[in-house]
Amino acid sequence: MIDFDLYVGKWPFNPLMDCEPAQLCELLKRNGIHKGLVTPLSCLQASDCLEANTAFFDQVKPFSDYLLPVLALNPLSTTWEEACSRFWNNSYGIKLFPGWHDYFLDDPKLTELYQTAADSKKPIIISMRFIDMRNSSMSICKAVDIEPEALINLAANYPGVNFIFSSPSLWEAYTLLAAGKRNIFVTISSLEGEGALENLCALGYGKNMLWGSNYPFYYIEATLAKTRNKKLDKHTRELIAFGNANRLFGI
């Protein structure tokens, strides 16, 4: 099983969310998760993208059997291009937080990033959410919703890039997958509803879904429970848990 929705580090608004790499590895092992694509929480707050990613790549290096680092970028940071060039080769993907950092994905400064991702076959991971902004007690945390239509256009404009949309709601995931783009993938951490996951799989979208927990914000057991659902056939469960990751990303 491969988790596409993991974070590591400190979350200043709630110490419950703090998660060090060693703890995270233990949690993955305990739950039968073989590897996780992990992003630094520090990059959400940091003004210096390079500094935060440097610390993060050093931090997770000893845990490379389990934790696969993902470069977290904020194109509004003055150091983002340097972070990109320094860590590109060691990263399993590039994660963007447009709603959190407040920019548009069609910003011309991102064009080269998309092109490089296409050339190097690295996925671009776009965070749709990691906490529920509607009800969060952390009033300092503001993020705008990303409209699925804008994401579909992005995927259409860059057909050579595999886009992974991280933690969409059920409605967002449905809209994204129904666009029928081969380069659109979603993680299942925020997919909820009785029958929802089976329904998406019955519509043929199982090959575009990736297992993700959104830990430490969500309980990892919550996503485990989704894929233990006996109404999903074994083949689909395996596609979501690791098959798609193997096939598409060589993980």
Binding site: A196, K226, N229
Partner: peptide, 17 residues
């Protein structure tokens, strides 16, 4: 809050707390 939410996921909020 099923069916808008899942029994299993919401149970995990308590059982994993």
């Amino acid at each position: 809050d099923a069916p808008g939410r899942s029994y299993a996921v919401q149970l995990a909020k308590v059982s994993s707390s």
